[in-house]
């Protein structure tokens, strides 16, 4: 159980504590309406887990927050600033938003250490020595110190994903987005990644986690957002969601995944 299990409930949009605010967000892929009038506010220090069936739009929601997917209408603001259009300002904002991908996406032509140093040097303009020190301490934090000089392809999936988390943390982000971080992992490697994420949550990092890991949702989340067919169907505490879901859609979803 996480140490910050103080449940914050649903903070009202516009409070000082709001770090990520989505208002009336819509997104289409051709004829498919993948995000339908999404309103969501994530407070500083909050861990929000987004769950739902495949194709419900949860990954798109996650990617929209740092504009890897552009939205059709609505507003997204991070720390009070609306998401800028493509360009220098957007790059600056993305540096403040850490992202961890399903397929790790470590830079394949660079060593693990270089992967974690790159953003610090090129975006944060730190000098090499300082960047390397921070990179090494982050690699230690995620438990892959001995792999620092290897290339990503030489690491296991779990190790790669932990390096990817270190790479995102190196930017000192205000919020971390996790887009199904354990979905591409062998079962025995899922826990090592979840443990790193649990630790992050305990340390007070603001996190948006799209996942199928119900155990993680139960233990680390302050709030569960359940999505289906491009809408937020239910938004509540993990306890409430898993023991007493209100919507039929959520009941149906849980009945399919929990009884094995």
């Amino acid at each position: 159980m996480s140490g910050v299990a103080v449940t914050k409930g649903n903070p009202t949009p516009g409070t000082n504590d709001a770090l990520v605010v989505l208002k009336g967000v819509n997104k289409h892929f051709g004829a498919l309406h993948v995000l339908q009038d999404i309103n969501l506010t994530i407070s500083r220090g909050e861990v929000v887990v987004v769950i739902g069936p495949s194709g419900s739009g949860k990954s798109t929601l996650c990617r929209a927050i740092n504009r890897l997917e552009a939205i059709d209408s609505g507003e997204i603001a991070i720390d009070g600033r609306p998401l800028p259009a493509e360009g220098r300002e957007l790059a600056a904002l993305r540096a403040d938003v850490g992202m961890v991908f399903q397929s790790f996406n470590l830079f394949a032509h660079m060593t693990v250490l270089r992967n974690v140093m790159l953003g610090q040097i090129k975006v944060r303009k730190k000098d090499k020595k300082e960047a390397e020190e921070r990179a090494r301490s982050l690699l230690e934090r995620v438990g892959v110190t001995t792999q620092a000089d290897k290339y990503p392809a030489q690491l296991s999936g779990g190790q790669q994903q932990r390096v990817a988390i270190a790479r995102a943390l190196a930017m000192e982000p205000k919020v971390m987005l996790f887009d199904e971080p354990t979905s591409a992992l062998d079962p025995e490697m899922i826990n090592e990644v979840l443990e790193v994420m649990q630790q992050l949550a305990r340390d007070g990092m603001t996190m948006v986690v799209v996942t199928h890991e119900m155990g993680f949702a139960r233990s680390a989340a302050n709030r569960v957002v359940f999505m289906a067919d491009g809408r937020i169907v239910e938004e509540t505490t993990p306890d409430q969601f898993f023991t007493n879901p209100r919507s039929d859609r959520a009941k149906d979803f849980l009945s399919k995944i929990l009884h094995h």
């Binding site: 740092n66 890897l68 220098r88 790059a91 600056a92 904002l93 993305r94 540096a95 403040d96 938003v97 850490g98 992202m99 991908f101 397929s103 996406n105 470590l106 830079f107 394949a108 790159l118 953003g119 090129k122 975006v123 990817a164 790479r167 995102a168 930017m171």
Partner: peptide, 22 residues
């Protein structure tokens, strides 16, 4: 893979940096 440039953009690299570094 497109994920390479997405990851590069996600850490705040500009377009010329994504192209020249990654």
């Amino acid at each position: 893979p497109v994920g390479q440039s997405e990851a590069a953009r996600a850490i705040g690299l500009s377009f010329p940096q994504v192209l020249s570094l990654i």
